[in-house]
Amino acid sequence: MHTPEPTAGSGRRLAHPEREEIRLETVLHALADPIRLRIAGELADGHTEMACIAFELPVSKSTCTHHFRVLREAGVIRQHYEGTARMSRLREDDLEALFPGLLSAVLEAYRRSHRPV
C-alpha cells in the first residue's frame, strides 16, 4: 500500500510505495527514460535533496511533473513539500536493499556515457 509522505506544514502529501512494493521492472522502466535517468544522476551526484525547479531539463513543466511522478511511483525517489517547493531525493537505501548494486551500476553507466570525449 502506498504511504503518503509526511509534510512540513503544507498539508499536502505525496504517495510513495513501501519498500516491499518496489518492483524491479518498474524501477528499470523509470530509469530507462533519458530525462528520468538524468534526474536520478543529478540527485546522486552530491545533491541529496533538490527542488524540482532546480533541474534544468529540456522539457515543459507538465512533462517534468510527469517524469518526477513516474520516478516517485516506481520507488526511485521520495518527494515532500517544503513550503511550495517539491523536494526530491533518491531512495538509495531502499533500492540497494532490494536490488544490490543496481542503482550504482546504472548511474555509473550513465556517467560514462555522458563524459566529454
Score class of each variant (00 low, 15 high):
63 T>G: 00
52 C>D: 08
55 F>N: 10
80 H>V: 02
103 L>N: 07
29 H>E: 14
36 R>L: 05
78 R>W: 06
74 A>T: 06
44 A>R: 02
104 S>T: 12
98 L>P: 04
58 P>F: 07
117 V>H: 15
41 G>P: 03
55 F>Q: 08
103 L>W: 06
109 A>L: 08
18 E>I: 00
77 I>G: 02
12 R>S: 03
59 V>E: 13
47 H>Q: 07
47 H>W: 09
70 V>I: 15
62 S>Y: 04
92 E>R: 13
20 E>L: 11
86 R>T: 11
33 D>E: 14
91 R>M: 12
79 Q>D: 02
47 H>L: 12
80 H>L: 12
9 G>V: 05
50 M>V: 09
87 M>C: 06
95 L>M: 01
32 A>W: 07
31 L>P: 12
63 T>Y: 13
65 T>F: 07
109 A>I: 11
116 P>I: 04
44 A>D: 13
117 V>D: 14
57 L>I: 10
3 T>Q: 12
45 D>T: 01
71 L>D: 04
34 P>M: 09
92 E>Y: 00
89 R>T: 07
99 F>A: 06
46 G>V: 06
114 H>S: 15
69 R>Q: 11
34 P>Y: 13
101 G>D: 11
50 M>Y: 02
73 E>Y: 03
43 L>M: 05
2 H>D: 14
17 P>W: 09
89 R>W: 00
16 H>V: 11
88 S>C: 15
60 S>H: 11
35 I>D: 06
105 A>F: 00
27 V>T: 03
51 A>I: 06
98 L>A: 13
1 M>G: 15
58 P>Q: 12
52 C>H: 03
86 R>L: 15
110 Y>I: 00
61 K>T: 10
24 L>R: 13
55 F>W: 05
4 P>C: 10
62 S>R: 12
65 T>P: 00
41 G>H: 07
68 F>D: 04
43 L>I: 08
67 H>A: 00
57 L>K: 06
41 G>C: 10
53 I>Q: 10
17 P>E: 09
77 I>Q: 03
21 E>Q: 15
32 A>P: 01
40 A>C: 02
76 V>Q: 03
96 E>F: 00
30 A>T: 02
73 E>K: 09
24 L>N: 01
82 E>K: 14
57 L>V: 09
96 E>P: 08
82 E>D: 15
106 V>R: 10
46 G>Q: 07
90 L>I: 00
26 T>C: 02
68 F>W: 02
25 E>I: 11
103 L>R: 06
60 S>M: 04
6 P>W: 04
91 R>C: 13
87 M>W: 03
80 H>W: 15
38 R>Y: 11
29 H>F: 14
47 H>C: 14
111 R>G: 04
15 A>C: 04
68 F>H: 09
19 R>T: 06
32 A>Q: 09
3 T>I: 14
54 A>D: 15
96 E>V: 01
91 R>F: 08
54 A>V: 01
104 S>L: 03
73 E>F: 10
23 R>E: 14
